[in-house]
Write a protein that binds this DNA or RNA. Structure first.
Length: 410
RNA sequence: CGGAGUGUGGUGUAACGGCUAACAUGCCUGCUUUGGGAGCAGGUGACUCCGGGUUCGAAUCCCGGCACUCCGACCA
């Protein structure tokens, strides 16, 4: 894409009403637009990143057998009454609205209830299980305080997967596969080294749930990391738990962290509420054992910005960068246009800065936007035999011939 | 929901209760320039968040509201 065609602009200064790094940089570089507190629109560059994150998530979910679907946002109070979660006294972050007739509706903040009820139409025999289904969809939560830029919003994207199993063992097998899938996801988006599988409070049906916590000063959580890479959330940090997990207190490292994923065993809580049962081999009716597995793609994007940016701007990992190459022309648009075409013919995603701007402007914008490879075409580079290639994360570039460049980037 | 802070051109800031609300940046015109937000000249752009009040006079003080940020509580 030619940058002259991109309608978003960068800003020289960070917006004054944002303190968090993710919001500052994403707004400054033109990835998101703030509509109001905790509500952000995704602009073309931001959407490209978000879609890449979603694709990575989809691949991993599909790999463990997840089937993608898309549930509704509008929610019928009746099904939430079945679990006692319609009342504002129980769930205080509902957004509720009304039909013209006066009937109340809710805007979904999660989807255990609707998917459990729906599955009654599809699960009746042990032959129907196990199965899992997921969606990537907008959630609404009436947070009393939105904060940290795109990290805690009132309207946000969530990948939520729900698993349905015949018994605890089958559930545990899937649950463990989900841990691996999640680990792959965070590793692919560039957060692998900073993200820890973390023991957290489990709720009614299991001792622990598992969170995926990325170490960052911008985090809201405190975790204690063991030498083997596993961690414990402060909320369950006590002697009994440490003993249970075999952790020595003196070996643990305390860090602030961002919760980028959370997986839960739900047991039969929801299947009992909706009478979701199946007939086993002997013809006995049993409750389905469930689990839920969440990741916020928007929060993940914000976490990458928090964890990987520097004082000049964002540094996107190649896997989720809006483009692979940022091609800058310094007064050499004709030559650069040819290179632009060649790169595109080789299937390389490139943002071509063909704007009539100063060298300094282009460099500054390039650093801010954070595309992993920067290619500069100028009289200087051409006289030295080609173009300069520099990685965003590194300080020095090198001259390459155009053919070598294409080979390298392909 | 409790506490604190802040609202001024598109953006970032300034202005003792007192001239036509200033500066930078952006944007437009022209020239110049092309390896780190360079230069010159001209121009555009603000009911100072909203509503009341005090005052001869309010961006500035007071009251009410709204919004945003931060701290805390909350976070299936």
């Amino acid at each position: 894409m030619k940058q002259s065609q991109l309608f978003t602009k960068t800003r020289k200064e960070a917006p004054k009403d944002e303190v968090s790094k993710n919001a500052q940089l994403l707004i400054q570089a033109g990835f998101v637009y703030k509509e109001m507190a905790g509500v952000y629109s995704y602009l073309p560059l931001g959407l490209r990143v978000l879609n890449k994150i979603n694709d990575i998530i989809r691949k991993e979910m599909n790999k463990i057998g997840g089937q993608e679907l898309f549930l509704t946002n509008l929610q019928d109070p009746k099904i939430w009454e079945a679990t006692g979660r319609w009342s504002d006294d129980v769930v205080d972050n509902w957004f509720k609205t009304k039909l013209k007739s006066g009937t109340e509706l809710g805007l979904g903040f999660t989807h255990e209830e609707p998917i459990t009820r729906m599955m009654k139409d599809h699960i009746s025999s042990f032959r129907d299980l196990p199965l899992s289904a997921y969606q990537i969809q907008t959630k609404f939560r009436n947070e009393s305080r939105a904060k940290s830029g795109i990290m805690r919003g009132r309207e946000f994207l969530m990948k939520d997967l729900y698993s349905f199993s015949r018994d605890e063992k089958e559930h545990d097998d899937f649950y463990n596969k989900a841990i691996i899938a999640y680990t792959n996801i965070f590793s692919k988006v560039g957060l692998g080294e900073k993200t820890h599988v973390t023991f957290a409070s489990g709720g009614t049906f299991s001792k622990y749930s598992h969170e995926f916590q990325t170490v960052s000063d911008a985090g809201e959580d405190i975790i204690y990391i063991a030498p083997n890479g596993l961690a414990v959330n402060e909320e369950v940090f006590n002697d009994e738990v440490l003993k249970d997990l075999g952790f020595e207190k003196k070996d643990l490292k305390k860090e602030k962290s961002i919760e980028v994923g959370n997986i839960f065993s739900l047991g039969t809580k929801f299947s009992e509420a909706f009478d979701l049962t199946f007939s086993d081999e002997k013809g006995e009716n049993k409750f389905v054992v469930m689990g839920c597995y969440g990741i916020g793609p928007g929060r993940l994007m914000g976490t990458v910005v928090e964890a990987l940016s520097d004082e000049r701007g964002i540094i996107w990992p190649e896997t989720i960068a809006p483009f692979k190459v940022h091609l800058l022309s310094l007064g050499a648009n004709e030559e650069t246009e040819k290179i632009y075409n060649q790169l595109q013919q080789n299937g390389i995603e490139v943002l071509f800065d063909d704007r009539d701007k100063k060298a300094g402007d282009k460099f500054a914008d390039s650093d801010l936007i954070g595309i992993p490879y920067r290619v500069v075409v100028s009289e200087k580079s051409l006289s030295q035999g080609g173009v300069e290639l520099k990685k965003r994360a590194e300080n020095d570039g090198k001259i390459f011939s155009i053919n070598d460049l294409i080979e390298l980037l392909k």
